[in-house]
């Protein structure tokens, strides 16, 4: 059991998809205009990651090598569509906010990457734990980035406004701020957390 626990914690720092593996940059930059949006995008990816990891670890032994990529993509796309339908039904406003980036989870390199690098060689339980770990790592990065951008850009945190008024530094909510914040957060991560 401790091995599975390690798989989960590895995803948070040592294999952090955003800061170490540099994967899934598009949703990371695009959806983190606030902490809540970042958190939701992270959880949406986590959902797909865990389910597709489990499904792929189950079917991998039966899939011929030459068609494994198309098969994996179909499996991932199925879970993404499932997520789209569920979000449309039960969280329609969040579905609208995240927009295009929900269907684009299909081409998020993290999901296909974990299927290729881990899930097709390991058991269901281990693959689920790996998906959970990497997904949590992704969720944490997105939430932190969203939080930083929300504090600087709108003067609020998780929707709670603390400067009285909504006059933050607008650039941080817009495109340039996304790149700058991620760049500087990565510097901090390299300086204090990364072990060579």
């Amino acid at each position: 059991m401790s091995k599975n626990l390690k798989l989960i914690t590895d995803g948070l720092v040592k294999n952090n998809p955003t800061f170490v593996l540099l994967l899934g940059m598009c949703p990371t930059l695009a959806t983190t205009t606030s902490a809540i949006n970042g958190l939701s995008m992270g959880l949406a990816t986590l959902f797909v990651l865990v389910l597709s990891n489990m499904a792929i670890s189950l079917i991998a032994p039966a899939v011929p090598d030459k068609v494994h990529i198309p098969v994996y993509i179909v499996v991932i796309a199925t879970f993404v569509t499932l997520l789209q339908l569920l979000m449309q039904a039960y969280t329609p406003s969040m579905y609208e906010t995240l927009g295009l980036f929900i269907p684009l989870i299909v081409v998020n390199c993290i999901v296909l990457g974990r299927a290729e690098a881990f899930a097709n060689k390991h058991g269901v339980l281990e693959s689920a734990c790996d998906g959970l770990g990497v997904g949590l790592g992704f969720t944490c990065s997105l939430t932190v980035l969203g939080l930083v951008r929300e504090i600087l850009g709108s003067g609020s945190a998780f929707g709670f406004n603390f400067i009285g008024g909504n006059d933050g530094m607008l650039a941080f909510v817009m495109a340039p701020g996304a790149f700058l914040c991620l760049g500087y957060l990565m510097v901090l991560f390299n300086k204090f957390l990364k072990k060579d």
Partner: peptide, 18 residues
């Protein structure tokens, strides 16, 4: 690991998955 590829099982697996 993965099964050996031949036309028959490739078509079958892809078709079945879809």
């Amino acid at each position: 690991m993965a099964a050996v590829s031949n036309l028959k099982n490739m078509v079958m697996v892809l078709g079945l998955t879809c």
